[in-house]
Simulated assay, not measured.
Amino acid sequence: MASSTVRPEAHEPHEHEVARRLLDSAARLAYDPATEVDWETPLDKDFHGASPEWSTLYGTAYWGELTDAQRKELTRQEAASVASTGIWFEMILQQMVLRDIYAKDPTGADVQWALTEIAEECRHSIMFARGAQKLGAPAYRPRRLAVELGRAFKTVAFGEAAYAAILVAEEVLDVMQRDWMRDERVVPFVRTINNIHVVEESRHMKFARAETRRHLLGAGRIRRHIHAFAIAVASYVIVSSMVNKDVYANAGLDGERAIAEAKANEHHKSMMRSSCSGLMDFLASARLLTRPALVFYKRAHLI
């Protein structure tokens, strides 16, 4: 019992040091999407909304039948759906972080960093909303079951369950957006949005990793297994919600056929697995890849 109470306290200076470095980084490099993103120039439909290789239909027979204009419209709808999912999860993230720092010392670097992160997430959500609107997409929302599971998760998740789930959502988006922001086929304002998000989310991911490790210091075997399962289920819900099924009909495609081919698309599954190798390595090092958890990561094609 003595060691489990001492170890987190011994780790506390490192926790504050990470937060101080992140605060310094935010002071040096932060963006205001309201002025950094070109909101005024009309949408140029000669561009994609995301790298075509990341489309859920890329590599399928249906993709081969689409015109160039249809492919570009599909990637714009898919990018808007990913952005809308990002808003949904950022709202969950903000509530979990606020709950974690509630009643803590506000003069501490860790609380001040958490508030800084929440401020950045608020700006990101507005940025994503305006970006989706400019792409000519509706307000995509996750299915009702996902919304209600998210509502429950944000209410009960704590410690490593909360921060590791945050990390999963951020890491998956990060890998996609690093490709999109460098791709000259992607419409310029979306590339700017992706660049802003990648830069600022790198700080959030560093904090989430540090907090996950810190909370796991005092975790016993049962708690670790329960939270590993909860993180995996949350990850599956997040990833499976990224591309709304309505994107295909809204892009002018045969929705039923598109959904079937996207579901069987091995190229997209491979892209997801390869992009998440670093994330899975981290979860493995934290001993959060239990057998029950692996079932959901495999279903989400993250491993």
Score class of each variant (00 low, 15 high):
Met1Tyr: 04
Ser3Val: 13
Val6Ala: 15
Pro8Ser: 15
Ala10Gln: 14
His11Ser: 15
Glu12Asp: 12
Leu29Phe: 08
Asp32Trp: 12
Ala34Ile: 08
Glu36Tyr: 13
Val37Thr: 10
Glu40Met: 08
Leu43Thr: 14
Asp44Gln: 14
Gly49Asn: 12
Ser55Val: 06
Ser55Thr: 11
Glu65Ala: 12
Glu65Leu: 09
Leu66Val: 13
Thr67Ile: 14
Thr75Val: 11
Gln77Ala: 13
Glu78Tyr: 12
Thr85Ser: 01
Phe89Arg: 02
Phe89Tyr: 04
Leu93Met: 08
Leu93Phe: 09
Pro106Phe: 15
Gly108Val: 05
Asp110Gly: 02
Leu115Glu: 09
Glu117Ala: 08
Glu120Asn: 10
Ile126Gln: 03
Lys134Val: 06
Lys134Tyr: 07
Leu135Val: 04
Ala146Ser: 06
Gly150Asp: 03
Thr155Cys: 03
Thr155Val: 00
Thr155Asn: 10
Glu160Val: 05
Ala164Thr: 02
Ile166Pro: 00
Ile166Gly: 00
Ile166Tyr: 00
Leu167Lys: 07
Val172Trp: 02
Val172Asn: 00
Leu173Tyr: 04
Asp174Arg: 09
Met176Gly: 02
Gln177Leu: 15
Trp180Ser: 04
Asp183Cys: 10
Val187Pro: 03
Asn195Leu: 13
Glu201Arg: 06
Glu201Gly: 03
Glu201Leu: 05
Met205Glu: 12
Phe207Ala: 07
Glu211Ser: 01
Arg214Thr: 10
Leu216Phe: 02
Leu216His: 07
Ala232Pro: 07
Ala232Leu: 05
Ser235Cys: 08
Val237Pro: 01
Val243Pro: 03
Lys245Ser: 05
Ala249Arg: 13
Ala249Lys: 06
Ala251Asp: 02
Asn265Cys: 14
Ser274Met: 09
Ser277Ile: 14
Gly278Trp: 03
Thr290Phe: 08
Tyr297Met: 11
Arg299Gln: 15
His301Phe: 09
Leu302Ile: 14
